[in-house]
Amino acid sequence: MAFDAMAQTEEDRLIAAYAAGDPVAARALTARLAPRIYAHAMRMLGGDSAEAEDVTQDAMLRLWHAAESWEPGAAKASTWLFRVTSNLCIDRLRKRRGGPALDDVPEPVSDAPSAVAALQSRARTDALQDALMRLPDRQRQAVILRHIEGLSNPEIAQIMDIGPRAVESLTARGKRALEALLAGRRAELGYEDDD
């Protein structure tokens, strides 16, 4: 059995157990799905943890309510959740155009020697996040799902409700735009020092 099919079977089993009232299933589903959803929401929302938490909780609440009428084998719970989460994030982004910029988030300061490397790593992560936030919503969504969450094109097509060719086009354009946005920041982010 393929890994995806195994994952779907396990998710279906857990959802059925949850719907039957098993409290352990709720914990297992939370541990399995919520961190991925939270990470996706964080990236989609530009690192706003409070909003990402709200979105994650809302998406999982929708899963709890959907569990009763869940059809095994119809859709992967994680794919379904990514779709719900992406839509919730895009709704929020549309509502809050002009929110706090990533540059306004204070950087943690530490005196430890390893802090330099940690700061450079953090700076790279922030630079990527900053560049991602400059992409149009759909391009950002496609790039995150494909290149950070590691989902397949057919899965992304399901999540975004578009065809696989449109996914390829969005991810390709998104990557090109990211390259252009990050091209001038090598020295600033310490790439030369890391190599």
Partner: peptide
């Protein structure tokens, strides 16, 4: 690098 260091939920 971003994939390897996902933001962790509280």
């Amino acid at each position: 690098e971003a994939r390897a260091t996902p933001p962790e939920p509280a």
